[in-house]
């Protein structure tokens, strides 16, 4: 899969994030728009079995923190059965859904 993740990068201190901020929280420089390759690795994850209101039909679902291979650390959903998800697993970005990044196991 070759989907990229849009985000921002600081031209001065190279701080980057997938969250669309305007100003670098580290050095207050105006950020540039950029995009990151969607390949990454799961750092940790949790399984939401008791969802908040509005997410009832989606549970159980997996929320993970992912280090992109060429980009920042991000948070997103893993579209997979919870039992199949492991720390250290490689993932690919699939799409943006309801404001969240959605990954699949590589």
């Amino acid at each position: 899969m070759n989907s990229t993740i849009s985000g921002v990068e600081c031209p001065r201190c190279q701080w980057s994030d997938f969250f669309k901020a305007q100003v670098c929280p580290r050095c207050l420089t105006e950020l540039n728009n950029t995009s990151f390759p969607g390949q990454g690795r799961i750092i940790t994850f949790t399984v939401i079995r008791y969802p908040p209101i509005g997410f009832e039909d989606q549970a159980p679902y997996v929320v993970a923190i992912i280090d992109l291979n060429s980009g920042p650390r991000v948070i997103g959903r893993i579209n997979a059965k919870p039992d199949a998800v492991k720390i250290g697993a490689n993932v690919d970005f699939a799409r943006e859904a309801a404001g969240a990044l959605e990954f699949v196991l590589a």
Partner: peptide
């Protein structure tokens, strides 16, 4: 510190 865990270097 940052509100979001993913923005931290160490968890």
């Amino acid at each position: 510190d940052t509100l979001s865990l993913y923005q931290r270097k160490e968890l």
